[in-house]
Design a binder for these strands. Structure first.
Length: 119
DNA sequence: AAGATGACGATTG
DNA sequence: CCAATCGCCATCT
């Protein structure tokens, strides 16, 4: 039984921003929860981004596999359809993953603060 | 209301 | 590089 996570208006806005950023991540790249949090102005709320992704899991068009922790580790793999789904999706994107960790992370890392601009 | 939890992050040893 | 610990903030029990 999936609980429909009540979204207050305040966090709904937060979620929306998260989804947009995640959708903008180019193929073959990935970013971190902290980077997104920082981009949204909640740099200390990295956990909130993870929480948002939990809800994003039920959304379409949100490549959650491109969002990993700051070390490039696939910490959220267990939340996918299957524990291996996340790794498979990343490999399909051309991202090499070894031992639940993205290879060459520093080059794969896509920072919305740097790559994007705040209007 | 209080304590535990979590798809995190940074620091320390 | 790995393990332990603390800080962070919203949610759940």
């Amino acid at each position: 039984m999936i609980k429909p996570v009540k979204l207050s208006e305040a966090n709904a806005d937060f979620f929306d921003h998260v989804y947009q950023v995640v959708r903008l991540i180019p193929k073959g790249r990935a970013t971190s929860y902290g980077a997104i949090a920082a981009y949204l102005g909640a740099k200390s709320g990295s956990r909130m981004v993870g929480w948002a992704m939990n809800a994003a899991h039920n959304q379409e068009g949100v490549p959650a596999q491109r969002v990993v922790n700051r070390n490039g580790m696939l910490t959220g793999k267990m939340h996918f359809e299957t524990p291996t789904k996340m790794e498979e999706l990343l490999q399909s994107d051309g991202v090499e993953v070894i031992n639940d960790r993205i290879v060459n992370w520093k080059e794969i890392f896509w920072d919305p603060m740097t790559e994007l601009e705040i209007d």
